[in-house]
Structure formats: structure tokens, C-alpha cells
């Protein structure tokens, strides 16, 4: 439980950090995920791209059980996420989530946003949690905003606080659900650079994004999701330089035309 902060030690190379097998998800009659299998190793950065409605966000939300699944299985660090016997609250501390709309707690200060998890979930001493919180805010470059409220921050700052909040539980993997899509263009860079730093430190990350440059330069592996299936996957270089699937070629063409 008390693994050293923000380091990444995982000796079990064989067990993937995330293992998705044959995942199905329906919303009523609509099938959003149609048999997705994906395995993410410890320390890997996987970027998921795809047009809207392709099931990217849904897949991410299934990994921490913000959505129930219709079929298949998901394991995080060996724990079955959708098993009634699993402690979902524990699994969620292992797999942090960063949302498109930040979802910071507006009634709490920046520091309290970060320390709430450690204090209530990890039962960390308050003084210890504050020290941890300040350290994490320092890491995302917002130490001086610790006692401000979220409403006083820019979008980019909010998202960096949200990343610090996720890091505060010392997760083994962080899921990013379009972390920069709600930001003004000039604020995207500061968030991506924090994410890049995390990737360099060896954090396991699954990122749903439209930032192709991030995918190209930070991802170990890129996945193209199309109509609820993985249409193509590969390392960033071959993925972008020689896409095979016709829809992916079309998609990359559209994105790069922007």
C-alpha cells in the first residue's frame, strides 16, 4: 500500500497493467464497443484515437467501472473490475481518471481537491496529506495556487490540478479522457507537457485524445478505434507514417487538414 510516491516499480512483467478481453458495451440497442481486446503493459503509454462515437471514452470509462459492461472482462493490475466481489473503490485508487471537463470539486480549495482522496480513502494523516498535496502541486507547477479555489483558475490550470488529484492516490495507471478537448488552444500545451513528464517518469497511461503530435511523440502504441472495434494499432511511427486501414487514412487526413 505504501509504495514510494510517483515511482513505478512493477516486477511482474508478465501480468499486464490493464487487460481487456472481448469487451462489449451496449447502450440500449446501440452497440458502442464490439469485442475490444487490449492489453497495456506497465510503463506503457497507449493513445487511443478515433472519430467521435467510436467508443473511445466509453472504453476508458469501462476500465474504472464508470460504465457497466455488457460482455467480456477487464482486469486492472490483476483485479477483475466488473466482478461483484472486487473492491471497486480500491481498484479506482489504482487506476486514476482525468476527465475532459476536469470535474474539480468547486467548494474545495486546490489543495483540498488534491488531499481529499489521501485523507478519506488512504486514511493519510492530514499534515502528511498536505505535504504530499503541495509536492504534487509543485510538480504540476501550481504550488502557488494551493489555497485558491477552482473558479479562480484557467482551464489548463484546472486540468493540471485534476492530474495532481489523480496522482495523489499513487495510482499504477492513469486514464485520460480527452484531457485537452475543453481547453482553449493556447492552454493545451501546459497540460500536455505535464502528461509528457509523467510518461517520461514511467507512468502507465491510456490517453484518449485528438492531439496527434502528442500521440506521435509520446505514445508507445497508438490505437485506432472505429465503430467499437480496434481497426488498427501499432507503434507511433508506423501508425502515422504508413497507416493501412482506409478509415484511418481518411481520419488522419481530416485531422491533419485542420
Amino acid at each position: 500500500m505504501n509504495a514510494p510516491m510517483s515511482t513505478h516499480i512493477d516486477t511482474q512483467i508478465d501480468t499486464p497493467m490493464i487487460e481487456i478481453k472481448d469487451l462489449y458495451k451496449n447502450f440500449g440497442d446501440v452497440t458502442v464497443l464490439n469485442g475490444v481486446s487490449l492489453s497495456v503493459s506497465s510503463g506503457e503509454v497507449v493513445v487511443i484515437i478515433g472519430s467521435s462515437g467510436s467508443g473511445k471514452s466509453t472504453m476508458l470509462r469501462c476500465i474504472t467501472r464508470l460504465e457497466e459492461i455488457s460482455g467480456g472482462s477487464i482486469k486492472v493490475d490483476g483485479h477483475h473490475v466488473h466482478d461483484a466481489k472486487s473492491d471497486i473503490n480500491y481498484i479506482r485508487t489504482e487506476a486514476g481518471m482525468v476527465f475532459q471537463n476536469f470535474n474539480l470539486f468547486p467548494h474545495l480549495s486546490v489543495l483540498e481537491n488534491v488531499t481529499l482522496g489521501p485523507i478519506k480513502v488512504r486514511k493519510t494523516e492530514k499534515s502528511e496529506a498536505i505535504a504530499l498535496g503541495l509536492k504534487l502541486l509543485e510538480k504540476v507547477g501550481l504550488r502557488e495556487k494551493a489555497y485558491n479555489y477552482p473558479s479562480q483558475l484557467s482551464g489548463g490550470q484546472k486540468q493540471r490540478v485534476a492530474i495532481a488529484r489523480a496522482l495523489a492516490l499513487n495510482p499504477k495507471v492513469i486514464l485520460f479522457d480527452e484531457p485537452t478537448s475543453a481547453l482553449d488552444p493556447e492552454l493545451v500545451g501546459e497540460v500536455l507537457s505535464v502528461m509528457r513528464q509523467l510518461a517520461e517518469e514511467g507512468m502507465t497511461m491510456v490517453v484518449v485524445t485528438h492531439e496527434m503530435a502528442f500521440a506521435r511523440y509520446v505514445a508507445d502504441r497508438v490505437i485506432f478505434l472505429e465503430k467499437g472495434c480496434i481497426a488498427e494499432e501499432g507503434n507511433a511511427e508506423e501508425f502515422f507514417n504508413s497507416p493501412k486501414h482506409p478509415r484511418l487514412k481518411e481520419f488522419l487526413g481530416q485531422v491533419q487538414a485542420l
Binding site: 473503490n89 479506482r92 485508487t93 482522496g117 489523480a166 492516490l169
Partner: peptide
């Protein structure tokens, strides 16, 4: 807000 709370393990 509920999702964010649950996602940090509350």
C-alpha cells in the same frame, strides 16, 4: 462530480 469522487476511490 459524483464520477470524480468515485474515481479517486471514495
Amino acid at each position: 462530480q459524483m464520477e470524480a469522487g468515485r474515481s479517486i476511490g471514495l
